[in-house]
Design a protein around this nucleic acid. Structure first.
Length: 445
DNA sequence: GTAGGGTTAG
């Protein structure tokens, strides 16, 4: 009886965000059951205390406390947010071992989402197909997964299948479906579904949906129409709405529209380095060197610095993290040797390093130094380590904290070809599946 | 015999 009362109190503290008090009470409890541990685990997870959550889970394991579906779902969700595939797989194994398969849609959906987010989209599909009572969240997890991986066709096919099975789409579904239409350039279909969303499904467009429409039209080159969407929005456009239009300006080298968008973004989100990088790229492509310099100066004055690029790869359950030109890794010698070798070979296939879009923070460096640093971008170091360390033919999964640069994108396509490897790069927005010289994003990003 | 979990665009 005592334990239940205590559990309720721990949960109450957690739901008010008073983690310290919850923890204090939890630690003082003489008797604890699964629910007690879950209460505090959920508290940690909600508070974004990832390391603490994992430690607690380990303690639970060591103390031989029974897990239930909630414990598993919470920890799987955590793996997803950390992009930790190997950890996630281990826990999936535990789910199976403990007989929790088919015990809860929530847990199974969490697994689908984890596999998709960690780059294992085929595995996500296998788990998805085994979910007995798929609900809208399960379908959304899988459709979104496909969309994020650049598999738009699969996303749309699944959307059709979902409807045939009598599941009603919701606002989340439409975000992914609109994105899939945008990626495949199906403008008419995208427009049609944005109308049908309200008329047939009574789902009201939120700012996020408008951002998708801006992206859909903007990427297709209909920049004026995209702008009109923003102007007609009944709600205040978000930074991301303007961001979508800025992205479209980059794709279509539209300097005039960029100026218009830039002014809005300077007001709304002046400290975001990503916007400045995009702007600089647009001016560079147009050969407007004075404006490129202006952007640099503006960043200096406002104290905005481009985030340093970081890439990481999971090898034997451990994360290996790289900065550009970093020489910290114990296998540095081998990594650089492999990289030099690869660069030579892809140059043989016609690769020419493109240093045009490099945005320097402060000092000027020579063309040669620029090229040298480009060839050692963090994702290339991570890929190189993957090639050395992972079993032959196995998929290489690399994660990056920024959008991948177009030169690395070109180089990785060629590297996938000459090494005959499936290379997956996650770059904050989406997954790029490089296979046989091509990328699943279709060069759309 | 508690109360808790999974999906969101560029």
């Amino acid at each position: 009886m005592h334990v239940i009362l205590h559990n309720v109190m721990v949960s109450a503290f957690v739901s008010c965000g008073r983690i310290d008090e919850a923890k204090h009470l939890f630690e003082q409890m003489k008797e604890r059951n699964t629910a007690s541990w879950n209460a505090i685990l959920v508290g940690y997870a909600k508070g974004g205390l990832k390391v603490e959550s994992f430690n607690l889970f380990r303690e639970m394991h060591e103390a031989d406390v029974e897990f239930d579906a909630l414990t598993m779902a919470t920890i799987i969700n955590l793996c997803a947010s950390l992009l930790a595939l190997e950890h996630g797989e281990k826990i999936h194994g535990l789910v199976i071992k403990k007989g929790h398969v088919n015990s809860s849609v929530v847990l199974e959906t969490a697994l689908v989402d984890m596999y998709a987010k960690c780059g294992a989209i085929e595995k996500a599909r296998i788990v998805f197909d085994m979910v007995n009572d798929k609900n809208i969240v399960s379908w959304n997890a899988m459709i979104t997964g496909y969309s994020k991986h650049g598999y738009s066709k699969e996303a749309l096919i699944l959307y059709e299948k979902m409807q045939r099975e009598g599941i009603y789409p919701n606002e989340v579904t439409f975000l992914s479906v609109l994105a899939a239409y945008s990626h495949t350039g199906l403008i008419e279909e995208g427009l049609r579904i944005s109308i049908s969303m309200l008329e047939d499904y009574e789902v009201e467009a939120k700012a996020e949906h408008d951002s998708c429409m801006v992206d859909l039209l903007g990427h297709a080159g209909l920049l004026e129409d995209a702008k009109e969407v923003i102007e007609k929005m009944p709600i205040e456009p978000q930074v991301s709405t303007w961001g979508a239009l800025l992205g479209a300006c980059r794709v279509h080298n539209d300097v005039d529209m960029e100026r218009f968008v830039a002014n809005r973004l300077f007001e709304l989100d002046p400290q975001n380095p990503g916007h400045y990088v995009l702007m600089s790229n647009i001016y560079t492509a147009a050969g407007r060197w004075k404006e490129v310099e202006d952007i640099r100066q503006m960043m200096k004055i406002k104290g905005v610095r481009k985030d340093p690029g970081i890439s990481w790869i999971e090898i034997n359950n451990e994360l290996q993290i790289f900065h550009a030109v970093s020489k910290m890794h114990p296998q540095t010698e081998e990594i650089y040797c492999t990289l030099r070798h690869l660069t030579l070979r892809i140059k043989g296939l016609g690769y020419i390093p493109d240093t045009t879009f490099i945005l320097q923070n402060v000092e000027d460096i020579t063309k040669e130094e620029e090229e040298e640093s480009l060839l050692q971008h963090s994702e290339r170091l991570a890929i190189s380590l993957g090639l050395i360390s992972l079993p032959e033919k196995s998929t290489i999964r690399v994660f990056k904290n920024l959008q991948t640069c177009s030169d690395c994108h070109t180089a990785t396509k060629l590297i996938s070809k000459i090494t005959d490897r499936h290379i997956i790069v996650w770059d904050t927005n989406r997954f790029h599946h490089f296979e046989n010289g091509e990328c699943s994003c279709g060069d759309y990003w």
